[in-house]
């Protein structure tokens, strides 16, 4: 009996994972004791010179360290030694704050722009110029005006997540089918009710696409922003561990950034499915 596609895909994923781990292991493990080296020199250089093993940690090292982090994610031993859970928490908090502020400003503003051809035309040049600016380019300006590194990071998240939502909301609202608006008009539905019960649900899938793009960008940017402002957060953690030369921790941080990014996207994907409709 042929296996279902889902099952076969799952099997293939597992096989690929095992192959990757095996290759990784083979690539970083040493070949045993390397010829005669001056023992003094060997002592100086550490294991890598003695055994020929790479300084790159292998999957086993990562596994052990990961277990350590997972069993104790929230310890706090001062500013330079916090659990990875705490660091991720800081980053998520900043992203949700900046992103949340962007939601509450971009969606109403996008609505206004989408409903009024006048605003659409008048604001278009500004949006076109502001949109392509790398959010990190705002950082010095933010630090100078806000004078607070934490708030500056949140501002940078805000500024990077605002554009996709603003543009998608405006586009979604402006392209609501005329037929549906005519239905509301013939039923003498007031402006407010038309906006909430016709335009909003009609544009919701387009708006949600913008929201999803925004959170993706916000999560990309927070790592870089935290590397710049320092102090706390997963971005700072990565940079700090790099300075400690703890490649194992860097890899674990990369992994956790990926997992959290995926979870954020899936949460919004679930929301998007709720507001989706089929014509």
């Amino acid at each position: 009996m042929p296996l279902s596609l889902g099952l076969r895909a799952g099997l293939l994923s597992v096989v690929l994972f095992i192959a990757f781990i095996a290759l990784w292991h083979a690539a970083v493990s040493g070949t045993g004791k390397v010829a005669d080296i001056d023992p003094e020199y060997a002592k100086l250089m550490g294991a890598s010179a003695v055994t020929g093993a790479s300084a790159m940690p292998g999957p086993g090292d990562i596994g052990v360290k990961l277990w350590e982090h997972l069993t104790n994610p929230f310890y706090d031993n001062g500013p330079n030694d916090k659990g990875i859970g705490i660091q991720l928490g800081y980053s998520i908090l900043r992203v949700l704050l900046g992103f949340g502020l962007a939601v509450v400003t971009a969606i109403p503003l996008g609505f206004l722009i989408g409903m009024s051809p006048l605003f659409y035309k008048a604001l278009d040049p500004y949006i076109q110029i502001l949109k392509p600016i790398s959010p990190l380019a705002w950082m010095p300006l933010a630090l100078y005006t806000i004078k607070d590194s934490n708030a500056s990071a949140i501002f940078v998240i805000y500024i990077c997540s605002v554009w996709p939502m603003l543009l998608n909301t405006a586009f979604g609202v402006a392209s609501v089918r005329k037929e549906w608006l005519n239905v509301a008009r013939t039923l003498e539905v007031g402006q407010m009710r038309t906006a909430l019960s016709v335009i909003l649900p009609a544009a919701a899938p387009t708006i949600m696409t913008g929201v999803r793009i925004s959170i993706g960008i916000a999560w990309l940017v927070i790592v870089a922003a935290e590397m710049l402002v320092g102090g706390t957060g997963i971005g700072y953690f990565v940079w700090n561990e790099w300075n400690n030369l703890s490649i194992t921790n860097v890899i674990i941080a990369i992994l956790s950034i990926g997992v959290i990014g995926m979870l954020l996207d899936q949460a919004l994907g679930w929301l998007a499915r709720i507001v989706a409709y089929q014509e």
């Binding site: 037929e179 239905v183 039923l187 003498e188 016709v198 507001v275």
Partner: peptide
């Protein structure tokens, strides 16, 4: 001077709101 509830329109392409059920569409009216 404009649309009115006294003049109902049946549109050529039904113009139902796709996110509402049959009941929801009629209840909206």
């Amino acid at each position: 001077t404009g649309p009115s509830l006294d003049r109902a329109v049946i549109f050529q392409h039904h113009a139902l709101l796709p996110w509402l059920s049959v009941l929801g569409n009629i209840a909206f009216a």
